[in-house]
Design a binder for these strands. Structure first.
Length: 828
RNA sequence: GCCGAAGUGGCGGAACAGGCAGACGCGCACGACUCAAAAUCGUGUUCCUUCGGGAGUGUGGGUUCGAUUCCCACCUUCGGCACCA
């Protein structure tokens, strides 16, 4: 330890974070300080931060997600909660396979080497992770239970296999869930390649069964932003289902949110993939329809970005009857109708729907107005202008709608729906944008889907007691990116669990989001063999009290894990409805150039270098200080000097041999007031994740202590109280420094087992306040007055101020407003 | 196009619930220490000013004794969704 600085005549050691941090990390581990076990005498708090993918090196983003979460967990611990704060790895995934193909390393080797490295890097954070609860999703002891969940879901009718046109990433060589296709160009969430459509037999989870319940966020302390995004993603539409009939007698149900416009339906449109297309198309139209269908299929395989949005379609030659007015209307085929939403068929109301209008205009189909705007109603006597464009009126009335003519537009949906039900023509219906979750991946490095295909028995689940279906290690990677499981004979060939006849294994693996949908349960007992988690641990710790992580998972992981918990509840595995009661999203650390960090931009900030240069405590404190946590912002190498100096000063002041000179009671009282105000402020801020202002408050206390030291007027007691409080309040943010100074000041190990300090209102209360005196709303004077003065007294003092008298200049106040404890505003 | 968030000094950012705009920090300026520099410490730091004051929280209006905060319209940036019937 270096000794080079003299303070008040006494030599003290210099702050050397590297030495201190390593030493305490070791001690904490030796003494099991962060072991987190059931304790029925204390309230539990399950703090969870999103688990990382073992990509190689820890990124500053990991630090930004984890260290403030750790500070919050540490704060809760000091508040008296028994806190669980586990960590693990979401270890299956494509980058491991890419490494295998490009660098000839086995994905397993690559993954576990990365885990080893990242675990070491994470230890340098000094976080209170309980490593004995670590779970790694690629361990057979973990994915055994992922497979077990698959079987459970299958048994409960929540998993099924279906042939469908699905999204496929040609670069990753695998299908993707709808949630993993992003943006206007519909690109792969992971690699950015635009996806294509493929007709494949795939496994799905029935997330749509929970669409309605997933819209209910009652009792959840989640950001509005996330709730809105999920609500939009689920996309609930209320309307009616109405059945149209072709002239040949086929029924075509359609969903509409506007049953009030039924009389304006002048044609129908089917999606090109609609099963009825082939049946109804007339001989004369066959060639044209076939060509269109083929083109539509090809369309989805060409770059979507270059595809223009002009509507195209072909006439099927067939006609249907509009059930409300018996009109004969043509049936068209067009790709602006999606097979995956509603019934894949629509009634087209060109007068009141922009898309239908564009289509009708292009192909010369009739347009019939059925809702007339108030202006057009008023002009009805005269010749009406033809419709210029589709419009949908909220006001006005129905026209051309038989018995409903004259019905006010605002009442029409309800009235028409009721009538449809009476007449047996249709009924009220709800549709969701949410799709079932496609979990099949044509990849090697994932949990095998535990299914065997038997010629006699079809898809048969591997019995629970035979799980896990182990992923074989001896595989060869194809440069084509094809899954090596397809060519692994030993894996592929098995026998049917029912009849023992030769059978083939499913070679697809599960979406890694499946593995991460239940990891919070596995953390409770990662070595447990009787089930996914030990129920005793579950009874105590579940559900998660505070979840933290990035916003990018709003409509992926956070929907999946909610679905999972609801399904687990319905399968009798848990007795609550939501996995995470509270959620907080941190923002992103940008590069110094205010751009997203990337290797190509050269603006990446490496945490290992920062720790070597400044120490983990400084990095942690800076990350909490430089912006409000949910906002994030640009990294700045000059900015980190603030927290660096701050911690250095804390070191100096905590070890200073305080020399009293002439002690003044007022000075002691001032310091005590600041101390107690800081305890109050930091506590409030920690509750609300306002780490930046919490650090600022500690800096203020540091400044006050520094001033007290220079003046030497405060009592020993108030000095000690201030310094001890500063260390305790700082402990969650800079755990090593606080621990070291706590010990050096002669306290017992460990500062992290101390209670959060209490503040005393009578000490924190200000004795005097600055009374602001305004004239006509402009500040003209400030007066120090006793805190408790009444309004009349405040007014008297204000009016007596010399500067105020000058401004009033003899005029009589018209009105005087007094805000107790704040200001007096004199209106003249 | 629809939905959501945000615009505050040279910079990052504060401001409970309509009441002192700019906490805290960076940077900068000056001073101390030093042969000197760095580091450290101290003082100052929104802008303009004729030193009386005046202006000021994206823009323009409004409500109010008083608006960064509430209302209306608009501009800009970022995020999400997007032929969803």
């Amino acid at each position: 330890m270096l000794a080079d600085k003299s303070n008040n005549g006494k030599t003290i050691d210099r702050y050397d974070p590297g030495e201190i941090e390593a030493r305490w990390q070791e001690r904490w581990e030796e003494t099991g300080l962060y072991r987190q076990t059931i304790d029925h005498d204390r309230s539990k708090h399950y703090a969870l931060t999103m688990l990382p993918y073992p990509s190689g090196d820890l990124h500053i983003g990991h630090w930004y997600a984890m260290t403030p979460s750790d500070a919050r967990a540490r704060y809760m611990r000091m508040k008296g909660y028994n806190v669980l704060f586990p960590m693990g790895f979401d270890a299956f995934g494509l980058p491991a396979e890419n490494a295998a193909i490009q660098r000839n390393v086995h994905p397993k080797e690559w993954t576990y080497a990365n885990i080893e490295r990242m675990r070491r890097q994470m230890r340098s954070m000094g976080a209170m992770f309980d490593w004995e609860r670590e779970a790694i999703s690629s361990d057979p002891s973990y994915y055994r239970w992922s497979q077990w969940f698959f079987n459970k879901l299958l048994a409960h009718g929540l998993a099924y296999r279906k042939r469908a046109a699905v999204d496929f990433c040609p670069n990753c060589n695998t299908t993707l869930a709808r949630e993993q296709v992003w943006g206007e160009d519909r690109h792969c969430e992971r690699c950015g390649t635009p996806v294509i459509k493929k007709e494949l037999e795939q496994w799905f989870f029935r997330t749509t069964d929970y669409a309605e319940e997933l819209l209910d966020f009652e009792g959840l302390d989640w950001p509005e932003r996330v709730k809105t995004m999920q609500t939009n993603w689920i996309g609930r539409s209320l309307g009616a289902e109405v059945t149209f009939r072709t002239e040949q007698g086929h029924e075509i149900p359609v969903f509409t949110t506007r049953p009030d416009t039924l009389w304006g339906a002048t044609f129908m449109v089917l999606a090109p993939e609609h099963p009825l297309v082939d049946e109804i198309t007339t001989a004369g139209q066959n060639a044209e329809v076939d060509a269109y269908q083929e083109r539509a299929e090809r369309m989805s395989e060409i770059d979507r970005e270059t595809a223009d949005r002009e509507k195209t379609g072909v006439f099927s030659g067939a006609y249907a009857t509009n059930p409300v007015n018996q009109q004969r209307i043509p049936i068209w085929i067009a790709d602006y109708v999606l097979m995956t939403y509603g019934s894949g068929a629509i009634m087209a109301v060109p007068a009141h729907d922009e898309r239908d209008f564009a289509f009708a205009t292009k192909y010369g189909l009739p347009i019939v107005e059925v809702i007339r705007s108030p202006e057009r109603v008023a002009a009805a006597g005269k010749t009406l202008e033809p419709l210029a464009a589709a419009y949908t009126e909220k006001e006005g009335e129905l026209v051309n709608s038989g018995v409903f003519d004259g019905t006010p537009a605002g009442e029409a949906v309800a009235k028409v729906t009721a009538w449809l039900e009476e007449e047996g023509l249709g009924e009220g219906a709800v549709n969701y944008r949410l799709r079932d979750w496609l979990i099949s991946r044509q990849r090697y490095w994932g949990a095998p889907i535990p299914i065997v295909y038997c010629e006699v028995h079809g898809a048969v689940p591997v019995p629970d007691e035979e799980l896990p279906v182990v992923l074989p290690d001896d595989v060869e990677f194809m440069p084509t990116g094809q899954s090596p499981l397809l060519s692994h004979d030993e894996f592929l060939h098995t026998v049917c669990p029912i009849c023992g006849r030769p059978a083939l294994r499913e070679t697809d693996t599960m979406d890694t989001f499946m593995c991460s949908s239940w990891y919070q349960y596995r953390y409770l007992s990662p070595g447990y063999n009787e089930g996914p988690f030990d129920p005793e641990e579950g009874d105590y710790w579940l559900p998660v009290d505070q979840y933290t992580g990035g916003i990018e998972h709003a409509t992926m992981h956070l929907i999946y894990t909610r679905f999972f918990t609801k399904a687990m509840r319905d399968m009798g595995l848990v007795d609550f409805d939501e996995p995470m009661l509270a959620l907080y999203n941190q923002g992103m650390v940008l590069g110094e150039d205010n751009e997203k960090m990337s290797k190509s931009r050269g603006n990446v900030v490496a945490p290992d270098d920062l720790v070597a240069r400044y120490g983990a405590d400084t990095v942690r404190t800076y990350l909490m200080f430089f912006a409000k946590w949910d906002q994030g912002g640009p990294w700045n190498y000059d900015g980190i000097k603030g927290p660096q100096r701050f911690l250095h000063d804390v070191w100096e002041v905590a070890l200073a041999d305080y020399q009293r000179q002439a002690v003044k009671e007022e000075a002691s009282r001032d310091l005590r007031r600041k101390t107690h105000q800081t305890i109050r402020k930091v506590g409030q801020d920690m509750e609300q994740f306002s780490f930046n202002t919490a650090v600022a408050a500690l800096m203020e206390l540091r400044n006050a202590i520094g001033a007290a030291q220079r003046e030497g007027r405060v009592s020993q007691e108030s000095w000690d109280e201030a310094v001890a409080s500063l260390l305790l309040l700082l402990a969650p943010m800079a755990p090593h420094l606080a621990e070291e100074l706590w010990q050096r000041r002669g306290n017992e190990y460990s500062i992290h087992q101390q209670s959060w300090p209490e503040w005393d209102e009578s000490i924190a209360r200000d004795e005097t306040i600055t009374l602001v005196v305004q004239v006509n709303g402009k500040v003209r004077a400030k007066v120090e007055v006793p805190a408790g003065i009444d309004n009349a007294e405040a007014e008297r003092i204000a009016l007596a101020e010399e500067n105020i008298r000058r401004y009033l200049d003899g005029r009589q106040p018209r009105k005087v407003i007094v805000v107790p404890g704040r200001l007096v505003n004199i209106v003249v």
